[in-house]
Design a protein around this nucleic acid. Structure first.
Length: 319
DNA sequence: TCGGCATAGGAAATTACGTCA
DNA sequence: AATGACGTAATTTCCTATGCC
């Protein structure tokens, strides 16, 4: 059970307070007023408190002892605790009125948790507007039964909590995005590696064929290619069929340069997707065309970072 | 108009307390 | 009963905006 509820009339069995609580307590929290409390009579079950306030005649409040806990008389606060938790022993007061019985004093920094109803009320108000105008602060304080200062502090802390929550959410989203990006990058890198191997194989085939043509020894060419094929076939994926030696993709344009083709694919820093363009290394027409559609399934805000798919292709492939 | 001062309010950091496992 | 973790009320410090002289 949450204790220390302020102005939580669900815990107020006393008819005096039930019927007059709003009026009475409002009067206690008149800004700039200096209410004072005085225990005038205290018997085994009732507590009589005289409350004087500016603009108000002396009032006598009658409380059932087992249900109340005066916490901040100086600040004009009366809190009502659950009967189960409250006894005559824990009745305390930190009233600035030094005339109070020492037995009712408590440390000045004593704090009480706000009641469920108070928090609910403040939360609703916070949803409407998370900043407090002075008038609104006073109005809220009156309605919820707190000091304006307490309301201001609650809003301050609430804003801080809200900000923390938003930051946590943003961090989580950003991290998920990064993880996906990283995962996509890794899989792309593997594909890249696989394709590089295929290109190397095909390049070798092509070179051999060119050599064979130049030498006019077609028999030697056949045997060379035939010998190379079984050894490399295992490493090739099914995609290699696309780049078969008869494919127009490969035969078009100038001859490939096998010696330099591999370093274009070399992996740089894992987090650095940029590659310096170096046309001298490989003529654009030498590589088989990589279809950009293979990136189409990338989700926005994940690995593609919102850039057009066409642009992303250049992060990995320099033509 | 400009500068100095006081004041209020907010953000951020920190402390202190209450609650719970 | 003691203890540590956690949530939160409250405090402190710093900064900024505003009004007044």
């Amino acid at each position: 059970m949450e204790g220390g509820g302020v102005f939580d009339d669900s815990h107020m069995p006393n008819l005096v307070l039930k019927s007059e609580s709003s009026e009475v307590l409002d009067s206690l929290w008149v800004p700039n007023s200096s209410p004072s409390f005085q225990v005038s009579f205290f018997d085994e079950c009732k507590l009589y408190i005289h409350c004087s306030n500016i603009g108000n005649p002396m009032m006598t409040l009658l409380f059932d002892v087992g249900f109340i806990n005066i916490t901040q008389g100086c600040a004009s606060m009366v809190s009502f605790e659950d009967a189960v938790n409250t006894t005559t022993n824990n009745m305390k007061s930190e009233n600035c009125n030094e005339d109070f019985d020492p037995g009712f004093h408590q440390p000045a920094d004593k704090k009480r948790r706000l009641s469920h109803d108070q928090v609910k009320f403040l939360e609703k108000s916070f949803e409407v507007e998370n900043k407090l105008e002075p008038e609104r602060k006073i109005q809220l304080a009156k309605e919820v039964g707190l000091q304006p200062r307490q309301v201001a502090i609650w809003f301050q802390n609430r804003r801080a909590r809200y900000k923390t929550k938003v930051l946590e959410k943003e961090y989580t989203a950003l991290k998920a995005s990064y993880d996906k990006l990283r995962s996509d990058y890794d899989s792309l890198f593997k594909d890249n590696d696989k394709m590089r191997n295929e290109v190397n194989l095909l390049t070798e085939k092509l070179v051999m064929r060119e050599k064979g043509k130049k030498g006019g020894d077609s028999e030697a060419e056949k045997s060379a290619v035939g010998a190379a094929a079984p050894a490399t076939e295992a490493a090739s994926s099914a995609k290699s069929d696309v780049f078969d030696s008869d494919s127009p993709h490969c035969t078009e344009g100038a001859a490939l340069e096998p010696a330099d083709s591999s370093h274009v694919f070399e992996r740089g820093e894992a987090s650095d997707f940029s590659q310096d363009e170096d046309d001298s290394l490989m003529p654009p027409s030498c590589f088989p065309k990589i279809q950009v559609e293979c990136y189409d399934d990338l989700q926005p805000n994940s690995c593609n970072l919102g850039f057009p798919v066409q642009d992303q292709g250049t992060w990995f492939w320099q033509y």
